[in-house]
Amino acid sequence: MTHWRTYVFIINLFPVLSAFAQPQQDTTGRNAGFSSWIQETHLRLGYDLGKKIYSKLNGGNMDAAYLNLGYRNHILELFAGKEQMPFVHPSYTFVTTGTYYKIGYAYNFYENWGHMHNEITLGLRYGNAGFSYDLQRIAYDAPTPEMPAYVWAGHRFYSGLHAGWIEVGATLKAEIFHGFYLDLFLSGKRLLGGSKPDGFDLLYVPGFFRTNVSGFGFGLGYGVSYRFGY
């Protein structure tokens, strides 16, 4: 009979202790901690369709993909690509082979309604490429009509080239259907530094495209992506 009180006490401990096992509730009423934090992040995996189509139409190949890690409206952008593109000029032709990566931060300015996750972002990126040139043709004009013009064909390699650049990029991402998005890109970029090949010039950089005297470049493109997230 004396143990009955002990048993009641012990039994009453269980509901009290189980109250601590429940997740903490903050003032918004949502669950705090890791589970709510993860609900505000997303992952996006994309493929640059524009570069692929352009490269195939121009006798080369470009493969470019991107990964976005987002938390609320902040996005960490990561790009990587592999290119093999011919540069055809009336006087010469060379093929660029190389890879590049880009890393940047962007902010999504678009306010979505409901559960939509479309984006209009603006960000800053840094890009870097490693590549080589294969000069395959040089055409020399005939000095006079009595002498023939001369075309040299062969392979002259300029290897171990590098270049870096910064880019201001804006993107527009709109959902086409269930998690799949169509992304449009716009960018203004500037070449920062690059190893000039001996006896030639830095005319094309994978990821940057054609260079010019000013060092500035402009890009327009599109891709498809899939968004993983809540």
Binding site: Y140, A142, P143, T144, E146, M147, P148, A149, Y150
Partner: peptide
């Protein structure tokens, strides 16, 4: 004449510019 063709026509001169073939 170069390769049978007239490169520079007959002129009275003390200097000429002679083109060289690239091939």
């Amino acid at each position: 004449y170069y390769e049978g063709e007239n490169l520079i026509p007959a002129t009275l001169t003390d200097s000429l510019l002679l083109p060289l073939p690239p091939d």
